[in-house]
Every structure is written in structure tokens, then in C-alpha cells.
Design a protein around this nucleic acid. Structure first.
Lengths: 199, 199
DNA sequence: CCACAACTTGCGTGACGCGCACTATGTGCG
DNA sequence: CGCACATAGTGCGCGTCACGCAAGTTGTGG
């Protein structure tokens, strides 16, 4: 079989998603204050696998819960590359990130769980920061800068990831009525220049 | 006793530092690949306290190892506030961060341990991101913007924290000969504007 | 159809986080 | 000065977890 993904790989990804989905669902049931009550055994059972299999995929509850967010961040580089090459950097970044993070509009409860549960803070930061590497490469390619000589790509990528995080926090703020796309645009406009500084 | 810190508080901070210092030292002895060999019992013994006391202060090895970095980040807000109020934002940020993070020049081995050990990634990100809250407040105060209405302070704070992280990575790069202050200045110059966008 | 590789599972082990109860050491007041 | 109170340090025990190992099970390719 020469599929893009053979049966093995598809099953693997399916169980991975089943586990991470189950983990997030159970965490949501207990709320942000009862995370300790979500036992590994429960996650595994809910996902239809053994506890031992669960941590063939994840080495902590936190990792499983945040896996979806992490997977999404990993696509940031590709999202930016899919923008037309002659588009200015700032517009390309905004368009790419808005498309990536608002298609569909994110699940408010899930995002709130991830972003405002203290025990998940480390994993949440890891999840968002997974975008930085690929993003930096994409920015370097687009602006023709050498990531090893110039700090601009990596710094900008980190700034973008940070802006996305802050936008998430603001969007979750009680009383906020704007769409995530709107908030995200405002946040990104604070940090992304149209071109790297000459030098 | 009306000291700024009474005996109790000073003892407490002393044991806290003893534990975190011992944790980092033992981690360095084992190198980035033997972190699992650093047992809680060893850290506690090296710090002269019982294992139970150790996790009255920290709830994981990772947290103890990164505590120094976290404490430093917490001072970022105060560092920015100590700059003259009429200084432009970008200059004030660069001056404050350079002073905070290069007095004295950071310990390369310790920073490398924290930043390039996979198991510490989450805690390291947490440590650096602790600067964001205080920094955002300081930026808001300096620029006269309302952190609840305007995303600029929080986004800029996140961008600064990200730039510091990237500067650290670049400084640790083998073959780098520059001082951390130099790298840090270059990194920060990519993201901090002299003033918030009007709007 | 068969041999090989990859995934899943059960079991056992060592370490860890933390609640609880007790002791010891500062602290403030009469 | 001494006595009551608050707070830090400690020992013990329990439940949970991560992970190595050695089967068993299920795709894959010849």
C-alpha cells in the first residue's frame, strides 16, 4: 500500500486522537479545579485502550489534554507558507494565523481549560510555542534572511506565538463579545512588522 | 520586629534558595541527559532538609531547578519601572532588560541546562513567562494605556519575554562569541516599538 | 502463505506528590 | 520575662504514576 498514510499510521493517529479527545473531555467534566480527579485509568478506558497504551502516546495527563492545541500550532509554518509569496509579511502572517486559528472558531470551554488551569500552564505554553520553530523557518524563507545569522525570524515567531496566546486570554475574558478573529488581528497588529529591519 | 523581612521570612527564603540551588547543581552534575537520575531525596539531602520539606517548597524537580530563572523574571516589571519616565519605551525596555539579565553575566552552564533539556522545557517556558504579567503592567503604566481595553501592553510583554528566550538560545549557540548583552539588544530591537500604535 | 515489523497489553517496580498529625522554632502580648 | 499562638520542619502512609520488559495481536511485503 502506497497511501499517504497506511493503515498502521491511520490507526495510530486515530488512537492518539481518541486518547487526547477523551482526556480533554474528562478534564472539562471535572472543571479546572478538579483536574487531579481525572485518573489515567479513566482516560484510557474512555478512549478504549489500556492504561499502558495511553502512555505509549503521552507521558502525562497534561500532555494528552493539550495535544490538540499543540498539533494546531505545529501547522503554523505550513499555514504561513501557503500564503502568496508577494504578500507583505505582516498581512501574510495575520491572514495565515486567522485562518489557522479560526477555522472553525475555537472551542471556548476547551481553550479556557487549557489556558486558565494552573496545572496545565507549562504544557499550554509548550503547545503554543511549538509554532515557533516552523514559523521562524517560514518567515526566514519569506524574507530571505538566514536564521543562523539573523535573530529576526526566531524573535518574530516568538512574538507571534505570544500574541496568539494573549489574544486567547483576551477572547476568553468574561464580557468579551468579539470574534476570535477580531481579537487575534488586533493582537498581531501590535508586533508584526511589514519587513525586517535593514541591517 | 519590623524588618523588611523578619527572621521567619529570611529563613524561609534561605531554605528555598538552598533547595533550588542544590537542585540545579545536582542537575548540572548529571548533565542534560541524566535528569531522571537526580532523585528528590538527593536534592533534599544536599540542601540539608527532609524530602517532605522539599516539596513544601516545590512540587517537582523541574520547578526547583528553574526557580532561579523564574525569580529573575519576576523582577522584570520592577526593572522597567526603575527607568526614567521620560525615556522612550523601546530604550527603557532594552536598558532595563539588559541590566536585569546581565548583572552579572548569566551562568552559561545553568542556562543551557534549563533551556536545552527537553524535560525542563515546560518549566523553562513558565519561568520566562512569569515576566509577562508585571512587564505588561509596567508598560501600561508607562504608556498610559488601559491593559483591560488595549492588548498592546500584554502583547508587547509577551514579545519581550519571547525575545529574551530567543536571545538566550542564540547566546548559547556553539561558536557564539558575543556577550549576552549584545545578543539581547539585537533580539529586543526586533520587536519593541518606541510607542504604541495610535488607535 | 509466511516471516517480519509495529502496535497493544499485563505485570512489576521504583519514585513521587501530598494529606495528616506531631514537634520545634519564631513572634507578639500581657 | 513567660505564655499562648502562628508558622516552618518532619515522619509516615497512601494512592498514583511512568516506564522497562516480555508476551500476545495485528498489519505489511515478499
Amino acid at each position: 500500500m502506497n497511501d499517504a498514510m497506511d493503515l498502521r499510521a491511520r490507526n495510530k493517529q486515530a488512537t492518539r486522537e481518541a486518547i487526547s479527545h477523551a482526556a480533554l473531555r474528562l478534564a472539562l467534566e471535572q472543571g479546572p479545579h478538579g483536574l487531579a480527579l481525572v485518573r489515567v485509568h479513566d482516560i484510557a478506558t474512555a478512549a478504549g485502550v489500556s492504561p499502558r497504551t495511553y502512555n505509549n502516546y503521552f507521558s502525562s495527563r497534561e500532555e494528552a489534554i493539550c495535544a490538540f492545541q499543540a498539533d494546531q500550532s505545529r501547522r503554523a509554518g505550513q499555514a504561513l507558507r501557503s500564503r502568496p509569496g508577494d504578500e507583505p509579511l505582516d498581512q501574510a502572517v495575520v491572514a495565515a494565523m486567522v485562518e489557522l486559528y479560526t477555522d472553525p472558531e475555537p472551542d471556548k470551554a476547551g481553550l479556557r481549560m487549557i489556558m486558565s488551569t494552573p496545572e496545565l500552564e507549562g504544557e499550554a505554553l509548550k503547545a503554543f510555542s511549538m509554532a515557533e520553530g516552523p514559523l521562524a523557518e517560514a518567515i526566514a524563507a519569506r524574507t530571505g534572511t538566514d536564521p543562523r545569522r539573523d535573530l529576526f525570524p526566531a524573535v518574530t515567531a516568538a512574538a507571534i506565538a505570544g500574541a496568539i496566546r494573549v489574544a486567547g486570554r483576551a477572547w476568553l475574558e468574561p464580557g468579551n463579545t468579539e470574534s476570535f478573529a477580531t481579537v487575534l488581528r488586533r493582537a498581531l497588529s501590535c508586533v508584526v512588522p511589514a519587513a525586517p529591519p535593514e541591517g
